[in-house]
Amino acid sequence: MGAVIALDALLDQRRVWKGQASAAARSSQPTGLAHLDAALPLGGWPDAALSEILLPAPGLGELKLLWPTLARLTQAGQRVVLVAPPYIPYAPAWEKAGVDLRWLQIVDAGDNAPWATEQCLRSGSCAAVLCWLPQADDRSLRRLQVAAETGQSLAFSYRPAAQAINPSPAALRLLLDVGQVQVLKCRGGLPPARPVSLASGH
């Protein structure tokens, strides 16, 4: 019996290469998009970790990617914070997407956006924190990753698509394109080779 337990522990630590994605820990945070959930090895957002969404330009469905998750969290009475959004979140559209705005807070942080994001993540009182950090470097992203682990929160960072060539400590990296999303990196398995199509419609 002892050997079996030791093998399980080894597999959990991912020190043994099995050649196939292990169906071990499933994420408790589904994305709400069936195609994407099926494509991700964890079946959802990585728990208590930083996810990066790279987008070449606004208006490509970057909010539609997160709205199901935000709607689920806010309807369960969990707080979601937007740190330094680039535009005004248009309340009627967010409500139509199912987000309970009572649990949504917007932090106007200016140059202090990395600090504010880290504080929100570390506090543990926010279920998800969305931040827009065009200037973020590897070190500040690593800080966010650690803060998300400390506070057991979901962190989403929107960054320009040009950052895709740079390495990142994020647990999940998605490159958004017109109507589809490419998984660049994901924890718990190999990223799917083909882009995942997002369900169309507004």
Partner: peptide
């Protein structure tokens, strides 16, 4: 740190 008006909610009208 960010100012009194830095944290705000959102609602539709």
């Amino acid at each position: 740190r960010l100012g009194d008006a830095s944290v705000q909610g959102l609602s539709s009208h």
